[in-house]
Computed example of a mutant assay.
Amino acid sequence: MLATGIVVEYNPFHNGHLFHLNEAKRLTDADVIIAVMSGHFLQRGEPAIVDKWTRAHMALAGGADLVIELPYAFATAHAPQFARGAVQILDALQCEYICFGSEEGHIAPFVHSLDTMNTHKKLYEEKIKCSMQEGLSYPNALRIAYDEISRTTDEPLADLSEPNNILGFHYMQAIKEIRSNMMPVTLERKGTHYHDEALPEDSIASATGIRKELFATDVAHVQSFMPSSSYELLHQQPHQSWDHLYPFLRYMILREGPEQLASIADITEGIEFSLWRAAKEHATFQEFMKAVKSKRYTWTRIQRMLVHVLTGYQKSTRAQITSPSYLRLLGMSKNGRNYLRSVKKEVTLPVVSRAGSHKDPSLLMDIKSTDIYMCGMQREPGLDFKTPPILL
């Protein structure tokens, strides 16, 4: 059975995701689609709108065969670590292809970009360092460095100012670094831009726009942008946001104080003092974020810090987690179950269907993040121990 992997968040699963999933199957002639999906906290430093089992159910109803959780340590990391963790999981599951959506729509520019960056790696890294010393944010520093090395070639390069292109580039970089045999395939992103908040006239909207509409009005307004199965699941579940979690976050910041905050992952350069002052002064999440955001610290970068504050994710814990060490099964179809059986001897990481007495620091972080996420939903803790994989 030929397996193709995709990397997803499904926050929530919408028509654009359905198009991607179907095209991934068609373009690679896949028998099985394996989705590596972030858990309860996402790469942009946000809580998922609904829990990971609901989103896994959406994925299976949309045609995925296996849904594997991307561990917290990678799901909430910067793009290179996020991509590397996902690629390692798909490689462990013996995927022959990885298919990602991109603004570019063709693989060749990514190949040229990767070759150019490897050729001029020293220049690239020096330019990033200089830009950051001048006070620029990391994404802006990357963009300037990339523009610099782009002048060294006449080959068409991928536009790495676009969010899906950035992730696609890092997937391919990770494939090369771990020496995987997976073949990358890309398809052009359809519909609205990744960050677009307005809902379009056609049936494909961004997840950002769908979430904004959900919190501003109600779930009925997004029905036309989602498969009916996703809409029904979304309609049945309470919706999570930073507004719900901010009281817990504010308490954590004020209780810990700047000295303790400095030990949290991603908190650097004295920003702990800004977080502490903002928590003392602002009663809402939006006000807090506006007080902390600066030229150096983007909204996304700050949110990732705050997720780590909320979950107590220490720099020392992150140092222990260098690669995925298990495959957390969130859901599977009958086809997916047959695939797992067929490749059982070749799969290079243990499959975990339900959390038990594991001491793995990465799995412990997944369990803790679930419990904290559920606090904002006023639901019971321990669901990672109680909830079996979704079966369709």
Rank of each mutant, 00 (worst) to 15 (best):
Y251R: 06
D196L: 09
I166M: 04
S102K: 06
L254S: 07
I372E: 11
G270E: 05
S333K: 01
I128W: 15
E188G: 14
H221W: 05
E281V: 05
F288C: 03
I210H: 00
D159P: 00
S241Q: 14
T268N: 01
A145I: 12
K280M: 14
L187N: 02
L60E: 03
P258C: 06
S137R: 08
A64N: 06
M37C: 01
M377Y: 02
K176V: 09
T298D: 02
E104W: 06
G336M: 07
K129P: 06
T387V: 09
F285Y: 13
T268A: 03
Q286T: 09
A174C: 11
I390D: 03
H112W: 07
R211D: 00
Q320H: 10
L349P: 05
P247K: 02
S203G: 00
S131M: 14
A86M: 01
L18E: 08
L66E: 06
D202S: 09
A158K: 00
Y231C: 01
M365V: 09
D29A: 11
S230N: 01
E380V: 15
V309F: 13
L42Y: 03
C99Y: 13
P47F: 02
A24F: 11
S241T: 01
I372G: 08
E213Y: 00
N338L: 15
E148P: 13
S274F: 14
L234M: 07
S137E: 10
Y326K: 04
E148R: 14
M226T: 04
A83R: 10
S342Y: 05
P350A: 07
A198H: 10
R55T: 04
E69W: 09
A220I: 12
H195C: 02
D159F: 06
V222S: 00
E69Y: 14
Y171D: 03
T268C: 02
V8R: 00
T300A: 08
V343Q: 07
P227R: 07
T54F: 12
S274T: 12
E197M: 09
N118L: 11
T284Q: 05
L66C: 11
Q223N: 03
G101T: 05
N181G: 15
H78R: 15
H239K: 10
M117C: 09
H239G: 06
P361T: 08
E188H: 15
L18F: 10
E213M: 01
A141L: 02
A56G: 07
L234W: 00
D147T: 10
G382N: 04
E23Y: 12
N165P: 01
K345N: 14
S323K: 15
P389E: 02
I390M: 12
L306P: 05
I390P: 06
I321Y: 07
K386Y: 14
D51L: 01
Y124H: 04
N11P: 02
L249Y: 01
P389Q: 10
A108V: 11
I372A: 12
D29C: 11
H170W: 07
A92Y: 12
R250L: 04
F82N: 01
K345S: 13
H20T: 03
E188V: 14
E103K: 02
M172I: 14
M252P: 03
T311C: 13
H244Y: 07
L383F: 10
N338D: 13
N335V: 15
P139C: 07
K52S: 00
A64L: 13
Y246W: 08
Y313N: 05
E69L: 10
M117E: 13
